[in-house]
């Protein structure tokens, strides 16, 4: 048998271990909404069923994360530390959602330059001075702002549904869109779960909801496998 030489030992370059999948973000009339499920996958194993992947930062911002969850916990503690010192200055000057987005972008870019990335795709949502903010950052340091954002598999499955829904939505309508998107995502993504969490940011401030179950329906004819059942039901 032909053998390959052992690969060089890798000390910094890593791979994600416990991961979360798609985070969705959408602007609606008077605010921004983030949604994701609460599954922490260990490879293809559904390892942790209730992991919260939405983090409040300061008074106007929520950060949601897909990718490696331990890296996100590190990022969360960095953000907490920063917002603590920000409020400790007590100068009436607080970091805006855009500031936090830029900060995260620099952190991610700096880590990729060291070939030691924080393996996440982050979505930053905020509401400040009457204006909604929605931005994304990834492990390379790619940064952009948009009205609709979806990460990882959600980019393929949910983004088209969200584009179709548009941004001229009430809070209740936006919530329906998000629930439906995560339901459709669950139908096709093996690393999704039905336990989800939704956060809203508006003039009233940040509101991160508790995890709850969404319903599923498997009776669609497209889900019936004719090759197993002989004929469509």
């Amino acid at each position: 048998m032909k053998t390959k030489p052992v690969a060089e030992p890798s000390t910094r370059t890593q791979q994600p271990i416990v991961t979360g999948t798609g985070v969705l973000g959408i602007k609606y009339n008077g605010g921004v909404m983030l949604a994701c499920d609460t599954l922490g996958s260990y490879g293809s194993l559904a390892r942790f069923r209730t992991v919260k992947r939405l983090e409040k930062v300061g008074d106007f911002t929520v950060v949601g994360a897909s990718g490696d969850l331990s890296d996100f916990q590190k990022i969360s503690s960095m953000l907490r530390e920063m917002s603590t010192s920000d409020s400790a200055y007590d100068d009436g000057c607080n970091m805006t959602p855009r500031d936090i987005h830029q900060y995260l972008g620099r952190v991610m870019y700096n880590r990729r330059n060291k070939f030691d990335p924080l393996w996440n795709e982050l979505v930053v949502a905020g509401f400040r001075d009457g204006k909604p903010f929605l931005g994304a950052v990834d492990l390379i340091g790619t940064m952009y702002e948009d009205d609709i954002i979806a990460t990882s598999f959600g980019n393929y499955v949910c983004l088209p549904l969200m584009r179709k829904a548009g941004t001229n939505l009430s809070k209740e309508e936006a919530k329906q869109v998000m629930e439906n998107c995560l339901r459709v995502l669950y139908y096709r993504n093996t690393k999704s779960s039905t336990k989800i969490q939704i956060a809203t940011v508006s003039a009233e401030g940040v509101e991160i909801g508790e995890p709850f179950e969404i319903s599923t329906y498997w009776g669609y004819s497209a889900f019936q496998h004719t090759e197993y059942h002989g004929k469509r039901l």
Binding site: V6, P117, I140
Partner: peptide
């Protein structure tokens, strides 16, 4: 001589610092 493994190495997806946007 580098030591060689008897088993084939698993495929590893390496981190790439670049993306083409």
């Amino acid at each position: 001589q580098l030591p060689t493994s008897q088993v084939e190495q698993p495929k590893e997806s390496r981190f790439s610092p670049y993306q083409n946007n």
